[in-house]
Simulated scan of single mutants.
Amino acid sequence: MRRLVSILTLLPFLLAACNFAALSREERVARRAQARWDALIRGDIETAYAYLAPGYRKIKSLERYRRGIHGVGKWREARVERVTCPEKDVCNVDMQVKVRLMVPRMGEPIESVNPVRERWIYKAGEWWYVPES
């Protein structure tokens, strides 16, 4: 009986894993890119950092990454527009990111939507974000 309860407890997680594996690479990359941006918007830099390519994380610590992030509190929304994969292990993600800026002497904040292109690579069984710098 305990074994059955254990299996039933794990069943939703196993089904979710199977569904994720059935996604196309474009869908998988889109989900990871969206999750990274959702973390950035929440101000959860540690979670966003975990989406960076392992090689990038080897040369840039979490603290250095945190100091280089400018936009937390200004980013309001991010949405994946398109994912294209020019190579088997490389995808480009086109995002639309809404920012809110306070402009001196304007009184009201200004919101704008800006395009952002990201590069994602497939390594060690997962898709990872590779920043330009």
Rank of each mutant, 00 (worst) to 15 (best):
M1C: 06
M1Q: 10
M1E: 13
R2V: 06
R3Q: 12
R3I: 05
V5A: 15
L8S: 13
L8G: 12
L8T: 14
T9F: 15
L10R: 13
L11V: 06
L11C: 06
P12R: 09
P12L: 13
P12I: 12
F13T: 12
F13I: 15
F13Y: 06
L14D: 03
L15P: 06
L15T: 07
A16F: 12
A16Y: 11
C18K: 14
C18Q: 14
N19I: 14
F20Q: 03
F20Y: 10
F20I: 07
F20P: 01
F20D: 02
A21V: 06
A21G: 06
A22D: 14
L23C: 12
L23K: 15
S24E: 10
E26N: 13
E27N: 09
R28M: 05
R28N: 01
V29A: 01
A30T: 00
R31C: 04
R32K: 15
R32D: 14
W37M: 09
W37P: 05
L40D: 03
L40K: 03
L40P: 04
I41V: 06
R42A: 11
R42L: 05
G43T: 03
D44L: 06
D44K: 04
I45V: 08
E46F: 04
E46I: 05
T47C: 03
A48E: 08
A48T: 07
A48R: 11
A48M: 08
Y49T: 12
Y49V: 05
A50P: 00
L52D: 02
L52K: 15
A53G: 08
A53I: 02
P54T: 12
G55T: 05
G55M: 02
Y56R: 15
Y56S: 12
R57M: 02
K58M: 15
K58C: 07
K58I: 13
S61Q: 09
L62K: 09
E63P: 01
R64K: 11
R64W: 05
R64Q: 10
Y65R: 10
Y65P: 01
R67I: 07
R67K: 14
G68R: 08
G68Y: 07
I69C: 09
I69Q: 13
H70C: 06
G71T: 02
W75Y: 13
R76C: 04
A78M: 00
R79I: 03
V80T: 06
V80W: 07
V80I: 02
E81C: 04
E81S: 09
R82P: 02
C85L: 02
C85R: 14
E87V: 02
E87T: 04
K88N: 10
K88F: 11
K88G: 05
V90H: 04
V90R: 11
C91F: 09
M95E: 00
K98C: 03
L101E: 02
L101I: 08
V103W: 01
V103D: 00
M106F: 14
M106V: 10
E108V: 08
E108D: 06
I110S: 11
I110F: 13
I110C: 10
E111V: 02
S112V: 09
N114E: 13
N114Q: 05
P115Q: 01
V116D: 00
R119N: 00
W120S: 10
I121G: 07
K123G: 04
K123S: 12
K123A: 08
K123E: 14
A124K: 13
G125L: 03
G125V: 00
E126Y: 12
Y129A: 07
V130W: 13
S133V: 14
